[in-house]
Write a protein that binds this DNA or RNA. Sequence first.
DNA 1: CTGTTAGCGCATTCAT
DNA 2: ATGAATGCGCTAACAG
Lengths: 342, 342
Amino acid sequence: MLVFKSGKGFMYGVPTLTDVARLAGVSENTVSRVIRNKGPIADSTRTRVTSAIEELGYVPNRAAGSLASSGSMLMGVLLPSLSNIVFPEVLRGIHSALASTEYQALVGVTDYDALTEQGIVSSLLAWKPAAIIMTGFDHTDATRRMLENSRVRVAELMDIDAEPIDIAIGLSHRKAGYDSGRHLISRGYRRFGYVGHDWTADRRARKRYEGLCAALLEAGLTLKAEQRVDGPSSTIAGRDTLARLLTKKPDIEVVVFSNDDMAVGGFFHCLSAGIAVKEKLGLFGFNGLDIGQSLPAPLSTVRSNRFLIGQTAVEKLLESSERPLERQIVDTGYVIIEGATA
Amino acid sequence: MLVFKSGKGFMYGVPTLTDVARLAGVSENTVSRVIRNKGPIADSTRTRVTSAIEELGYVPNRAAGSLASSGSMLMGVLLPSLSNIVFPEVLRGIHSALASTEYQALVGVTDYDALTEQGIVSSLLAWKPAAIIMTGFDHTDATRRMLENSRVRVAELMDIDAEPIDIAIGLSHRKAGYDSGRHLISRGYRRFGYVGHDWTADRRARKRYEGLCAALLEAGLTLKAEQRVDGPSSTIAGRDTLARLLTKKPDIEVVVFSNDDMAVGGFFHCLSAGIAVKEKLGLFGFNGLDIGQSLPAPLSTVRSNRFLIGQTAVEKLLESSERPLERQIVDTGYVIIEGATA
DNA sequence: CTGTTAGCGCATTCAT
DNA sequence: ATGAATGCGCTAACAG
């Protein structure tokens, strides 16, 4: 165990900046400067300080730093869920961008609930984070007010079809849905079905649905059948829901799913039921998950760059600690993957 | 925008405990007590204080609290990766247990690198977290020393086949591998193949492999063929690697995969290659992922309770803020899922 | 280039 | 049941 002098004589415990200063024979302030690389420091003193830090195994107390500077090296991250693989991928992007910085991610899960989100935002704000990353645009008024008053930078991810608080990063789900429809129509499909999950939680799925319908309408078509399941998307839900849809309406040419999880499930149903995918029934998803692309027939879908969204959010937020005058929108785009299922 | 008195007259900004005290006409100390529910407070003053808090929208500054009490409501979480679905599921368990508390998760990703881990541990410790949750037993000496000196509680997750720093929560991968082998042998399989991924990063996969080999040896058998791919596990890797294995050794009866991702890929290969799963070739995985269970033929595998591991870790850590005298091991167990692929 | 002086906002003694 | 005093460890002016 290390022994060193502290404020009041010899102590066992965690060394502080004071201990480093004493050992290096400089003022606390100088040590602080060395640590933060701020202001001019003579090479000789820098060396003495760094070796003192080394010797003591000094680690700055972030709470103290944060209190003194009223700002922290924390980035608040609010995710609606960790069950849907999409959000861990966003988080991966966030961490990847954070890795080259000193920032740490303070992560909260809202469970798709605006009130839960409000509580977490309040807790996060208590740490004076450098910025907050959230998902979507559904916040309570109280949440908006807290965010407004705190003046922290805020990124709202995934969607860009609304006015952001500060900066929005993602893609237009309405447009993605629309383009999916156009794409499938151009491939000759006319009799469309839709298989989806609960969209009271997942608003973006609904926007894609609306875009799809718009494209159909424009072409003088409509959905011949649709089936939605309560609860979140999953492979099993997709499998069962497609089965149900086909029972009611067997003469569908192509099914658009609310996302890839559902579509993969649909693929499995076709496999079990002996339905020739694409020849007899086209399948189309959304997200471009690995699992879909590793199917014996790669899923036809839309790639939504989740990793990029997370990564871009961090980069954009760290560009400036002040909110820009104009609300910003970053379109990370999407790509239609032809695949082999539609 | 709120206006209120602060230390030096009227101010715009975030209200502090001082502001609350002034508004409620009590001392700061009393406000602090009300907030933390400590000590006796007259009902009348409690009401005045809470309504003052309400009125100002006061949120305690955690950094200040942490500094004053040298402890925080933070829980450090170190995950090797977010790409492997297994870890988001652990994180989900952690968050689920944290949800009913005031604690927040400070999350870092090590990328399976002990030195990266060391850096993150150091950063986390700077926040004086209540506890730290890590994965596995591979840490640098420096990491161990830091953890030792800091005296924070430490949980090491996933594995229980080693001596933990404080508490280990997970399952015996060696035993799980062994039991998988016994199970398959009892089902009549004799000609075993193995398809795996890079285990310099994923040590637990190796332990399962060793357990499997031990079971085979005990039954007078050996692996007839094995094929490992560089890099992490994935469905595509599983698909391609099984293909390669079968090219070299077509007369295998059953293939054990390093995990479900790989096994699902193997299943897809069989589908494409027209190999009758189970009749002609048995497939066996590890983890019990949803995707495996939603296959047309549910994957035969072992369920490792990831969610439970994360959840249990938090519960155990919060039981006491002091390390127990004896290092603790919590076995969350595993269950062999019969499935339909072996 | 470096030291001095003041707090940051709260929790923790100790009083009363 | 409440208040007053003190300091946690650090950063931010301001000097020099």
